[in-house]
Simulated scan of single mutants.
Amino acid sequence: MTLTAFLAAAASPVAAAPTRLDPIQLFLDADIVVQIVIIGLLLASIWTWAIIIGFTLRMGRTRRHARKFEDDFWSNSDVDSVMDSRRTKENPSARVAAAGISEYRRSHKKGLRDREAARARVAQAMEGQVAVESDTLADRLNFLATTGSVAPFVGLFGTVWGIMNSFFQIGLQQNSSLAVVAPGIAEALFATAVGLFAAIPAVIAYNRLSNTVNGFEARLTRFADRVHSQISREMEGA
């Protein structure tokens, strides 16, 4: 090496090695297939959090409306004034009560020739409505269950693809040094990390929110039982 070349090499700035992981740079350096996998997992994670926040707000509002309706229902002797169309449309408890009262009135209009059959129809109408309300509340939770179970495998697919790409680079460059293999492996493992990032909140939220739905279903069932008891007493006096 000549003196001029030595001085030029000494004067040139040495690129500083990264001191921490840069997720954005890992994403930009990744293979197009791994990038697609990561984008899909990030979108699933965003939708998961949207469902969690939306469901939590909706459930809190639904509980307040149900509690208010049930208090008014038991404290007011005029059922028709409580069962207005707007409340029945927006309130699960109101719809459950409306199903039982509607069935009772249809049976009463035809004459209560068989009170036990009428009681059974009223109970069945309210039980069916409770099931409908629970299914409606839990509808979007299926996405959380799907994300929680599928996202790790989607991330694993990105990992396998990235490792395959690393082996391809080894064969292409005829070099098995860590400098050749490490970038591809880092990109691959990043896909797995994103998959877990999407899956873990989805699993936790699904279990927690499912318990919330089950608890609200039990509350509706207890309310339906009380309404059924009240209707049965009215049938006895009819």
Rank of each mutant, 00 (worst) to 15 (best):
A138M: 01
L137F: 10
A94F: 05
L41E: 04
G54I: 01
E90R: 15
D135H: 10
F143D: 07
R115Y: 00
G54T: 08
D80W: 03
R115N: 02
D78N: 15
L144R: 04
A30S: 13
L141S: 04
K89Y: 06
T62I: 14
F143K: 04
V96S: 03
R106F: 10
D135F: 09
P23I: 08
V82N: 00
M126W: 06
A66D: 08
I53C: 07
L112V: 07
R121V: 07
L28N: 11
D72F: 02
E127S: 15
A98H: 09
I38R: 03
A120V: 09
F55L: 05
L112G: 07
L112N: 02
E103P: 00
V79A: 12
R119W: 06
S149G: 15
Y104D: 04
I51K: 05
R58P: 01
I36P: 03
S75A: 13
F55W: 06
T147C: 13
D139S: 14
I53H: 01
G40R: 00
I51A: 03
R61F: 05
V132A: 12
S107W: 09
V34T: 06
A66Y: 03
R95P: 07
A138G: 15
Q129M: 11
A44H: 01
N142R: 12
A131N: 11
L26R: 00
G40M: 09
V122K: 01
H108M: 09
I32Y: 08
V130E: 04
F143G: 05
V132F: 05
S134R: 07
L141H: 03
S81Y: 07
A30Y: 00
T56P: 12
A99T: 08
Q25A: 15
L141K: 03
D29G: 14
A50L: 13
H65G: 10
W74R: 05
A98P: 00
W49P: 01
E127F: 04
R113V: 12
V150W: 06
M126S: 02
A94Q: 02
A117T: 08
S75N: 14
I36M: 11
I38A: 04
R119I: 05
W49E: 06
E133N: 01
R20C: 09
E116W: 04
A120H: 09
S81V: 09
I36W: 12
L41W: 01
T56A: 15
H108K: 13
A66S: 15
D114F: 10
E70Q: 11
S102D: 14
